[in-house]
């Protein structure tokens, strides 16, 4: 049941976000509400599920049904909801710490499972909410109080991992490009199966250097592909600032149906009768 003429404002709640002025997540919120308006699902038929972090605060700032769970577990909550209620549009929302560190295992299995939902990770390459610790996507030499001199660890490559694990739609966007984000999120929602959108979303407070992303990002120079090997090669060799839809696959989504009326429960007894 889609409604025409929905506006982005129909998807906004009247809560004021707690974010720092200039935080990239403001733009992500704006893009999500615009994309939802474009898909035509009314807000009560959309559920936004998140974990913990600055970015994970988004659900309450929308006028959709929301579930702000515990750190790292947005994806399993979203999976349970979508399997139980296939009629809903389900968005899962995380930060890079939430999605790739504490929730990293769920990320792999959500890609494998390919349930029809959209997973948006606001990647600021830092733990914003806990005030500036390195995350799995942080550069190895980024200095911080918790890891002086840097972690020395190789950064996690979410897009390649999503591809290798079976995600059906893979894209990268930059929060400042609201038009691009809106279009890609809307496509991700429309595409069946598990859609993954990494949004580079600067943390202006703990990563002020990320303000420079604006000048570094650029649209992917080649069109999207449905060949995962080719997409993986491109993503592995690009500069990490390449935006747009990078892969759109054809895997069949996970299928279940849960009916509103329970079947014949009394009939389950017969196997125990002697």
């Amino acid at each position: 049941m889609n409604k025409p003429n929905l506006k982005a404002s129909d998807f906004k709640s009247d809560l004021t976000p707690i974010w720092c002025p200039g935080c990239g997540d403001f733009h992500v919120l704006m893009s999500i509400t615009r994309a939802l308006a474009a898909t035509g699902r009314p807000p009560e038929q959309v559920a936004a599920i998140s974990g913990i972090g600055c970015s994970s605060r988004i659900p309450a700032y929308t006028n959709c049904y929301g579930f702000h769970g515990v750190h790292g577990r947005a994806l399993p909550v979203a999976a349970g909801l979508k399997v139980a209620r296939p009629d809903l549009t389900v968005l899962a929302l995380s930060g890079d710490g939430d999605g790739f560190s504490i929730g990293g295992n769920h990320f792999l299995h959500a890609c494998r499972r390919n349930i029809d939902m959209t997973y948006i990770v606001m990647d600021n390459r830092v733990y914003g909410m806990t005030k500036g610790q390195p995350s799995p996507t942080t550069e190895p030499d980024w200095d911080s109080a918790l890891s002086p001199g840097g972690t020395g660890l190789s950064p996690f490559h979410p897009l390649v991992i999503a591809l290798a694990s079976g995600a059906n739609f893979v894209a990268r966007e930059f929060s400042g490009d609201i038009k691009g984000c809106t279009a890609t999120i809307a496509e991700a929602i429309r595409h069946p199966g598990f859609s993954f959108v990494e949004i580079l979303s600067p943390c202006v407070t703990f990563r002020p250097d990320e303000r420079e992303w604006k000048g570094k990002v650029h649209k992917a120079s080649v069109p999207e592909t449905d060949d995962p090997a080719r997409a993986a090669r491109r993503i592995m060799t690009d500069d990490g600032m390449n935006t747009g839809i990078l892969y759109r696959g054809k895997r069949r989504p996970y299928h279940t149906s849960v009916s509103d009326e329970a079947g014949d429960i009394a009939a389950l007894e017969t196997r125990f009768e002697i």
Binding site: F67, L81, K82, V83, A84, N105, H109, T256
Partner: peptide, 27 residues
């Protein structure tokens, strides 16, 4: 058989949260 569903999880951190998601959805 009765029109419900079981989802195999990757671990118990997931299974409890899947149950919460489905319950949030009214099941």
């Amino acid at each position: 058989r009765i029109g419900g569903a079981l989802l195999q999880a990757e671990d118990e951190l997931a299974s409890i949260n899947m149950a919460l998601g489905a319950s949030f959805g009214g099941r």
